[in-house]
Write a protein that binds this DNA or RNA. Structure first.
Length: 174
DNA sequence: GGTAAGATCAGC
DNA sequence: CTGATCTTACCT
């Protein structure tokens, strides 16, 4: 169950100009999936170490995606534990975008797959609407104050907020 | 062809 | 606060 996510937009001339998005400067080999049809998985390598996963949300041809930042592991906890290591508490199995992919076994190989395909290796199901809080996104050095991070209040699985050390003074305009 | 920064995380 | 670790995108 996803309990934390962040929205990312696209190029300057699109509906959601977003300098913090990989798609900001137009399609590239890495960000191509963000410009494709919705319901697909966009994965990328972060800081040379981790894998992060997004759900493409905008119509085909328009860049827009949601980064999955934290989740509750409702089933398969032993497998998640094996993937995360013996020192990690269950509440932290999928806390943070890199950890989430680690716990779920999502890799760069999964980039571009259809999350709505019932036979696919990674699938997404719509759940009940949850009451979400909103605030600035984590780790981005531009558009740092845009409140495009959403999380379920009070959930211990939600990751801690960390502003990028490279981000300008809080309150500065985009 | 070189290089700096990065949608992160864990350990000190 | 810092190091790990490597890909991407931008610069020349």
């Amino acid at each position: 169950m996803i309990v934390e996510a962040e929205a990312y937009g696209g190029p300057i001339d699109g509906p959601w100009p977003d300098s913090a998005a990989h798609s900001f400067r137009g399609p590239t080999p890495r960000s191509a999936v963000m410009f494709g049809p919705p319901g697909r998985l966009y994965t990328y390598r972060s800081h040379g170490i981790h894998v992060c996963a997004n759900v493409v949300c905008a119509e085909d041809g328009v860049a827009g995606a949601v980064l999955l930042r934290a989740a509750v592991i409702e089933d398969g906890a032993p497998l998640a534990a094996a993937r995360r290591g013996p020192t990690v508490a269950p509440v932290a199995f999928a806390r943070g975008p890199g950890n989430l992919c680690s716990a779920l076994g999502i890799t760069l190989q999964d980039n571009g797959i259809d999350l709505l395909d019932p036979h696919g290796p990674v699938r997404l199901e719509l759940g009940v609407p949850l009451d979400a809080a909103e605030g600035p996104r984590v780790g981005v050095s531009t558009a740092a104050d845009r409140p495009w991070r959403y999380w379920v209040s009070g959930r211990p699985e939600v990751s801690a907020y960390r502003r990028s050390p490279r981000a300008p003074t809080p309150g500065a305009s985009d």
